[in-house]
């Protein structure tokens, strides 16, 4: 497989064509903690607006990501990555979401080497982005949605700061 084919794996192309979570949803007033974030890739003008809704945990400790919805336009890498992330973190606890975020960042820093089998199992479809990590200019594309998730979680009040989710 060429580097180009490693980057544009079928799973990425599929997610780019049929992204999950597209279309912003407002859950209205209620118990859910909601936050929205707008992120721009300054080098190419790609953008994403992402909304997260978190069900707070018992006694206000922790919580669960109830839904992630988003609008955006950009390259296939940024669109597919946001789509894969939506699938991964929906239904996850905040702790699990933080681990996924950390693992995906590690994957993007791996320069094409990937992670260990256990970690890749956790990341699932997101391991398809291993090829992207060989192209420094494209890593930002893959991280755009994750940056929006992190920021929207902080804005929702579910996280005190971005420290909770790297």
């Amino acid at each position: 497989m060429s580097s180009l084919e490693q980057m544009y794996q079928q799973v990425i192309l599929d997610h780019a064509k049929h992204p999950h979570g597209r279309g912003l949803v407002d859950h209205g007033p209620g118990d859910l903690l909601q936050g929205e974030s707008h992120q721009v890739n300054t080098t190419c003008g790609d953008e994403v607006t992402l909304r997260v809704a978190v069900a707070p945990g018992a006694a206000g400790i922790g919580g669960t990501v109830e839904s992630v919805t988003w609008e955006g336009q950009g390259c296939s890498i940024s669109q597919a990555s946001t789509s894969v992330m939506t699938e991964l973190v929906t239904g996850a606890s905040l702790t699990e979401a933080a681990r996924l975020d950390a693992l995906f960042h590690d994957l993007m820093s791996s320069r094409g080497r990937g992670l260990g089998d256990d970690d890749e199992d956790v990341l699932g479809d997101a391991t398809a982005f291993t090829g992207v990590s060989q192209y420094p200019a494209r890593i930002k594309c893959a991280l755009l949605g994750w940056a929006a998730l992190k920021d929207s979680l902080v804005r929702s009040g579910a996280l005190v700061s971005t420290d909770g989710l790297r």
Binding site: S2, L4, Y8, C44, D46, G74, C75, S76, R138
Partner: peptide
């Protein structure tokens, strides 16, 4: 149907 970044990537290849 193809974003400029993706166009550039294929050309770069």
């Amino acid at each position: 149907g193809v974003h400029a970044h993706d166009v550039g990537q294929v050309l770069d290849d």
